[in-house]
Structure formats: C-alpha cells, structure tokens
Design a protein around this nucleic acid. Structure first.
Lengths: 119, 119
DNA sequence: TATACATATAAACGTATATTTATATAATAT
DNA sequence: ATATTATATAAATATACGTTTATATGTATA
C-alpha cells in the first residue's frame, strides 16, 4: 500500500532523530539527474529503446559534446546503461520505473502549472 | 494505461519535429524543485500535514532563512500552498501526487544505488 | 508605543553546472 | 598507414544555486 511505503520512507529518512539529521541524498542524487531539460529529453527519447549518441544528437538537435556530457551524467547516476557495438555506443534506460516517474512528473507539472496566475 | 500515457507524453514533447525542438520545460521546472536534499526533506516533512516555518526549522535543524528560501522555491514551483494564521505561516503540499512521486523516486534510487560498484 | 516573536528579504560568497569550442581517442574502411 | 567516422574529454566561460549573515517586515502582546 502507498501509505505503508511512505511510512517506510519516513522511517528510513526521519525528519528529525534526536536532533541528528539523516540524509536524503540518494533521492536527491537521482532527482538532480532529472532536473535538466536536455536530460529529460534524452530520457524520453530512450523510452523508445536503446539508441546511439549520434542518433540522440540528431533527434534532439544538440551538439555532440553536450549529448556526451549529459549521457555521462545519466550514467553516473546509473539511470542508463552503456554498451559498445563497433564504433557506436548505445545508451539504454536502466530501469522501467524511470519512464513511469517521468510520466507522473509530467502529469503533476501539467496540472500544477495549468492554472497558475503568475510566474 | 501506462503505455497510452507515455505516448501522449511523447506526442506532447516530440523528441524531434522537423528539426524544430519542443520544450520539456514544465517537467524540468518541477523536477528542479525536487533536486535538493533540504527541499526533499521539507516535502517529506509536509507529507505529515500542514506545518509552520518554525516547526520545519526545528524538525530539520536548518536555519530559518534557509527554510524560508527553500519554501519560497517550493511555492514558486507551486508544489506547496501558503496560508497565514496570526504570526505563523503554514505551508502545505499542493498535491497528493508529490508524496507518491517522492516514494517512487526513493524506491528507484534505492534499487539503482544498491549494487553500485563505484561512485 | 515598545517589546518580542515569526517570517521574509537582501547581500555576499563559494560552488556546481550547462554550454561552447577545440582536441583527443577509438574503431572502421580505403 | 591514412583518412573518416563516432564518441569522449578538456578548457573556458557564464550562469544558476545553496548557504550564511545581517536586516527588514509583520503580527501580537504588555
């Protein structure tokens, strides 16, 4: 159940335990990887399947070094796996839940920002 | 269905449309708000319900200006709503899905980083 | 009105990060 | 071997962001 999982999350990351702080850094570490528009576009593109760098570069219209940079970041956070095949290097989403979370985030963002009055 | 929602997301944010890029900025905008450990701790704390700034400051053990700063950021991204009552100002999560996404992110992060070989 | 409390804001600082430009590595083909 | 393609890395720059310190605003109370 959702409530149970949240309680486990609270237990794992107690907001306060005798004034001693317990970190949240794993979640932040992964969340940071999602906090860039180009990386989100790369991830979204990879939901269609494994792709080479050049393919991503073409599809997104970003420079090759920029794509490499962001792919390296996604690899560092373990969100993608890498595989070489000849001269090509293929990147693939490491977990199905990534796409699901992206979808949820989009739904939330859309609704939140739908009837905003100001920026 | 999950697949349908993903297709809608792809349609809304096509990776490439005649070399014309379509942004992903709403999602990134919200994701950025989740990309900080202290903000995540604030959000987690607020899953327990509406709280005043001073209560958050006590529970998290961060300075009051820092809490205000992050709460302002959460407010800017519409993740929290604000309400004044006397001298106190109460912050509350704006949407139930925020907690759900946090839980999902934690599950993902935990599994991804569980059997990493290196940092 | 004066004082205390709750919160916000401003300034200043250091660090992290996104992007560009240029170059290096690695694999393939001629 | 040389050239070409695919990708990575390095350097440089600008900007964004988190944090601290100090101060202001706003509300209640004596």
């Amino acid at each position: 159940m959702k409530t149970l999982r949240m309680e486990r999350l609270l237990k794992k990351n107690p907001v306060q335990v005798n004034r001693v702080e317990i970190g949240f850094c794993d979640v932040a570490f992964v969340a940071k990887a999602l906090a860039d528009e180009n990386r989100l576009r790369i991830i979204l593109s990879l939901t269609q399947g494994k792709k080479s760098v050049s393919r991503i570069v073409e599809e997104l219209g970003i420079s090759q070094p920029l794509a490499s940079h962001h792919l390296k970041e996604l690899k560092r956070t373990l969100l993608v796996t890498v595989e070489r095949s000849g001269p090509f290097i293929y990147y693939e989403l490491a977990d199905h839940r990534i796409a699901a979370i992206l979808t949820d985030l989009d739904g939330l963002a859309t609704d939140l920002l739908a009837n905003r009055t100001t920026f």
